[in-house]
């Protein structure tokens, strides 16, 4: 498949599964603009958020995402943004872990990158790691993933080969690789599809090049 075909195929699968997809203009600014748009579509505007105060957003502390300054995008959209990392003063690792878990449980939105995506199945691959917590894409009711266009592959098998590359680079596999294909789904009540029973009910991906 050509790059354009991969993109088209991924997008139609992902949307077919109930996800939203946003194509960004090339460059950092393009991706930030697409993220702004995605956040608007994904998460309820602040005044509609349940309870008082600003809604929270939790963001991977991922070197790949750093230049995008998504925390600023989120703050501008009315969120209080937190990065998945220990803050100065949190020497005890347990302290940071407990704080982040609490934020994840209350956050309205989680924002992550994605290591690769599979066109044939409409699937995103998320690696866990120091700055890339598993809970960011799991506990909040909405999840936004930002994907580099060059990371689109045709099949799950090709994705696994990318993972082998990562293993060689890190010296080990990530402790958790989560493949995500659309929102959390259940058909357990009278066979009727519902979303968001455990994981996010709303998912979006921004695809860009930066």
């Amino acid at each position: 498949m050509t790059g354009a075909e991969l993109l088209e195929s991924f997008r139609s699968r992902w949307e077919g599964l109930g996800g939203q997809a946003f194509l960004a203009q090339e460059g950092v600014e393009g991706v930030r603009a697409a993220c702004r748009e995605a956040v608007r579509c994904l998460a309820p505007p602040p005044e509609a958020a349940p309870g008082s105060g600003m809604p929270l957003a939790l963001l991977w502390d991922d070197p790949e995402l750093e230049v995008l300054r998504l925390d600023e995008v989120l703050e501008a959209a009315g969120f209080r943004a937190f990065l998945w990392r220990a803050e100065a003063g949190e020497e005890e690792p347990g302290q940071a872990a407990a704080r982040l878990r609490g934020i994840a449980a209350r956050a309205a939105l989680g924002v992550t990158g994605a290591a690769w995506a599979v066109a044939e199945t409409g699937t995103l691959a998320l690696y866990s790691g120091r700055g890339t917590g598993r809970l960011v894409s799991l506990l909040p009711p909405a999840h936004l993933a930002v994907l580099r266009r060059s990371r689109l592959v045709a099949t799950v098998g090709e994705g696994f080969r990318m993972l082998a590359g990562e293993e060689a680079r890190r010296g080990d596999l990530p402790s958790a690789v989560n493949l995500v294909s659309g929102p959390s789904m259940s058909a357990d009540i009278e066979g009727e599809l519902t979303t968001g029973v455990h994981g996010p009910a709303r998912v979006a991906v921004v695809i860009g090049e930066w």
Partner: peptide, 17 residues
């Protein structure tokens, strides 16, 4: 919707798992 590929417990530098 989800496939989890789990290789061992959380690593020492991880904050969840």
């Amino acid at each position: 919707s989800y496939v989890s590929l789990l290789s061992g417990p959380r690593r020492p530098d991880e904050l969840d798992g």
